[in-house]
């Protein structure tokens, strides 16, 4: 096992600093939102984690295609790292959304298209890990995972549209307006600053965790290989 590269060590530290800075900006620097109060501050982290998790899931689907085209296990290791980190981030997104929804919508959960799609997508990728657990052969596991990740990624937008059959109350903050949305607000200068900083911070944190997870996957592959060799 090769030693942890210096760049990754630096990135670890930078991620910690960025997380602290993003927290500071969203709690102490950004102005308080007048209608919802302090709970609105979790919004910066909510969108930050959602942003990277969704990019991670799209990336995952692309990796499926690359793996199936090349059949190189390297892509499988990258994919499982991307899925795992995205699942963790998306879990944070869902929990934060729920915490925000309680005072803003007066309920922890509602079966709105975005919330439902989020829950279904999270379940797809949890199922992805259950599928992997049931398989020992690395090539077969990689094949199946790539197939399932691709199907899951394709089903997500259709799931979203299918729940559009019901109305939505999720606010659209960045673009467009939704008359039925509750809890929307426009961002002022300090808020935008915290918002973009959180996006940046979570992108860096994602890359850091992603890199660490890829290294873990490489170590796992090495152990598997050694165990097979030891058996003979």
């Amino acid at each position: 096992m090769n030693k942890k590269p210096l760049a990754l060590k630096i990135l670890d530290l930078v991620s910690i600093v960025l997380l602290i800075a993003a927290t500071y900006l969203s709690i102490f620097v950004a102005p308080m939102e007048r209608v919802m109060g302090n709970v609105q501050r979790v919004f910066y982290f909510h969108v930050g984690t959602a942003w990277v998790a969704l990019i991670g899931f799209i990336f995952t689907a692309a990796l499926s295609v690359i793996y199936l085209a090349t059949k190189n296990l390297k892509w499988d290791r990258i994919q499982v790292a991307a899925v795992e980190v995205s699942v963790v981030f998306f879990l944070i997104t869902i929990i934060l959304g729920s915490i925000w929804a309680r005072p803003a919508w007066n309920t922890w959960w509602t079966w709105d298209p975005r919330l439902t799609t989020a829950a279904v997508v999270e379940l797809v990728y949890i199922a992805y890990f259950m599928l992997r657990q049931g398989l020992d052969d690395p090539n077969k596991r990689a094949n199946f995972s790539a197939v399932y990740a691709l199907i899951g990624g394709l089903s997500a937008p259709i799931t979203f549209f299918s729940i559009r059959l019901f109305r939505t109350i999720h606010p659209v903050v960045i673009a467009g307006t939704n008359a039925e949305a509750e809890g929307s607000f426009s961002m002022s200068g300090g808020m935008l600053q915290a918002f973009f900083f959180a996006l940046f911070a979570f992108t860096v944190i994602f890359i850091d965790l992603f890199w660490n997870r890829i290294r873990l996957g490489e170590a796992q592959a090495k152990v598997e290989e050694m165990k097979i060799n030891a058996a003979y």
């Binding site: 259950m130 899951g152 299918s162 729940i163």
Partner: peptide, 13 residues
């Protein structure tokens, strides 16, 4: 476990 989240859309529709 694999099928239901993927087939969610078709069942709902």
């Amino acid at each position: 476990i694999l099928l239901f989240p993927v087939a969610f859309a078709v069942l709902l529709s």
